[in-house]
Design a protein around this nucleic acid. Structure first.
Length: 577
RNA sequence: CGGGACGUGGCGCAGCAUGGUAGCGCGCUUGCUUCGGGAGCAAGAGGUCCCCGGUUCGAAUCCGGGCGUCCCGACCA
């Protein structure tokens, strides 16, 4: 490709809207442009890389026995009514009507469509197992799109769906996808980790996320350096046993203290001269139209997902939404502003994290403005309906598998595999006959991978202060040829020769034949991050040399003109283009 | 949805407090020069100052109401 003809609008300055490196560089490098919030156009360079990501994903999916199809982006509400998600999915599902008043949505995921498809076409166990996938544009009306391609509203996703007759088969399908995802992450050059995860709106029985490890990731992860346990912090369990209730004799008498304007744990601790570990936070949740209180130690954070699961599975509550109570509700419940809630005398069910079980003589809010209580003790001063693991894991907590201190990191979720079970097949009546002639619901798995998010994740993990540094397999071009002085016939001709030679050798190559200064050419080459660069200048040509440089390395190398193409072919092959 | 910021040529910004008919850098066009890390000189083109309404002789600037984008949080995969 000739840069003189290429649509590659690079920018010298960072865009005002971008915050993180991948977003800034993909815009500056002319890879993408934003159309509106969370919706992007892919320019030639960006689209080339996206297609390369797709190719890798296709190869691994095909190799794992999955078959590619393409489902519609627009889906009728009837299917979503059947699965129950028309009501459950919430405002993230973009709904609209057609001219006849029929209700539709833009597909955020395709469980309903695929289940509808297979229930009509699969009749016999002999047709199983089956795994179908597609690479498709999804739309989720995210409440907060951000970070460029990392959290868009419209994005390209690969989603696969497996159908099996029994659990062993479904486990095997899950395992195959899990392995394939690992291979994809390896080929993309990621530093990655597969972690246990919550299943969220997709539902199902178990799931793993494939996380690209980077400080700018949105997800918090915990991992065990010893046994390899790794989980999203939303999911990370903590040991449930070993919490000793305090001795009755150690309890001191409760007192009320003035704490004017002290609404946070930090402020209360400074004011009263106590530690956060001596305090208990009282968190009020609205569960549909009921309220519950959750207690956690002052230095701990509640894990809303654990709270949700606990209330559903252990307490047996049924509800659609669980959220933190707003300021007004807190006032109605406690008679005080936010910051002074406490369990003593509170007229809502109180649940507590396990860590609270072994606390004694702690500090809580007094349900009155500017007031706290000290030397409060559970059971004596208020009732706890139940203790459970309700808090977020943090660094240093014991690994649930082996007890070693956990470490924390951050990640970008690029893939998620779910063992769905029969959630959708039961709801939508997708079954086959077994060899005994009885109907059996299909056991499903679904497997998502964010293609366009991967582009951003690779950029996030591979850049420096000058620009992007693509791994060879997804670089839009393998090599770029820079004739440095366009007024030198020898430079231009040598550049053209090398360019042609590389093209003939099958290298995807660009030539910067623009009438630009040498500085502009180098800067753009660094910015767009092409792995191999060959610079042709009058200086090197005096000795018959050109300069070969890898984007990921600091130094260049003088190479004789007639050897450089072979060298580049070699480099490109080595790096798995 | 709660909190905050911003909206001015293609891009990045100044101007707004104290109203007087829009400016800078980059980019773009033309010419000449230049040619090893975003070249120099000269001459140009390009703007509904987000939108609607109000105040005023006069609004980018003041007031009211919208819309949009970004950030933090909530939410979500």
């Amino acid at each position: 490709m000739r840069l003189s003809r290429m649509f590659m609008p690079t920018r010298k300055e960072d865009p005002a809207d971008a915050e993180i490196a991948s977003h800034k560089l993909l815009i500056r490098g002319g890879y993408v442009r934003q159309l509106t919030r969370g919706i992007y156009t892919f320019l030639p360079l960006g689209w080339k890389s996206v297609k390369k990501i797709q190719r890798i994903v296709r190869e691994e999916m095909d190799a794992a026995g999955a078959q590619e199809i393409l489902m519609p982006g627009v889906q009728p509400s009837e299917l979503w009514q059947e699965s129950g998600r028309w009501d459950d999915y919430g405002p993230e599902l973009l709904r609209f009507e057609d001219r006849k008043g029929g209700e539709f949505c833009l597909g955020p995921t395709h469980e309903e469509v695929i289940t509808d498809l297979v229930r009509g076409e699969l009749n016999s166990y002999k047709q199983l197992p089956l795994n179908l996938y597609q690479i498709q544009t999804k739309f989720r009306d995210e409440p907060r799109a951000r970070f460029g391609l990392l959290r868009g509203r419209e994005f390209i996703m690969k989603d696969a769906y497996s159908f099996d007759l029994d659990e062993e088969g479904a486990e095997a399908s899950y395992e195959q996808m899990y392995e394939a995802y690992g291979r994809i992450c390896d080929r993309l050059g990621f530093d990655w980790s597969a972690v246990e995860a919550d299943t969220g709106a997709i539902g199902g029985e178990k799931s793993h996320e494939f996380q690209v490890v980077t400080d700018t990731g949105e997800d918090k992860l915990v991992s065990c350096p010893d046994c390899g346990y790794a989980a999203n912090i939303e999911k990370a369990q903590l040991p449930a046993d070993g919490f000793e209730a305090p001795e009755a004799g150690d309890l001191e008498s409760m007192e009320t203290v003035e704490t004017p304007g002290k609404t946070t744990i930090g402020e209360v601790c400074d004011f009263l001269g106590v530690e956060p570990t001596d305090c208990v936070k009282t968190l009020l949740y609205e569960v549909d139209d009921q309220a519950v209180a959750v207690l956690v130690r002052g230095d701990h954070a509640a894990n809303d997902i654990k709270v949700r699961d606990f209330l559903r599975d252990q307490v047996g509550m049924e509800f659609a939404t669980l959220e933190m109570a707003d300021d007004g509700t807190v006032y109605d419940l406690t008679g005080a502003s936010v910051g002074y809630a406490g369990p003593v005398g509170l007229d809502v069910p109180v649940y507590a994290d396990n860590a609270v079980r072994e606390m004694a003589n702690f500090v809580v809010g007094a349900n009155a403005d500017d007031t706290h209580r000290r030397n409060v003790n559970w059971e004596r001063d208020f009732d706890v309906e139940g203790f459970a693991d309700l808090r977020e894991a943090e660094a240093g907590d014991p690994c649930p598998e082996c007890g070693t201190a956990l470490e924390t990191s951050r990640g970008i979720e690029v893939g998620h595999v779910f063992y769905l079970g029969t959630k959708y097949s039961d709801a939508m009546g997708a079954s086959v006959q077994t060899d005994e002639g009885v109907d059996q619901s299909l056991i499903m798995g679904c497997y998502g991978m964010g293609i366009t998010r991967i582009l951003a994740a690779v950029a996030e993990q591979n850049h420096d202060e000058h620009g992007l540094i693509w791994p060879m397999p997804i670089a839009p071009y393998h090599a770029t040829v820079l004739p440095l002085q366009m007024n030198s016939d020898e430079v231009v001709e040598t550049g053209e020769e090398i360019y042609e030679e590389l093209q003939e050798a099958g290298v995807e190559v660009m030539i910067d034949d623009r009438d630009e200064g040498v500085g502009a050419k180098f800067k753009d080459a660094d910015l767009i991050g092409i792995p191999v660069r060959v610079a042709i200048g009058t200086r090197g040509l005096e000795d018959g040399n050109v300069e070969l440089k890898l984007r990921e390395e600091d130094d260049d190398e003088l190479v004789p003109v007639d050897e450089v193409a072979d060298r580049i072919v070699e480099i490109v092959e080595e790096r798995g283009a």
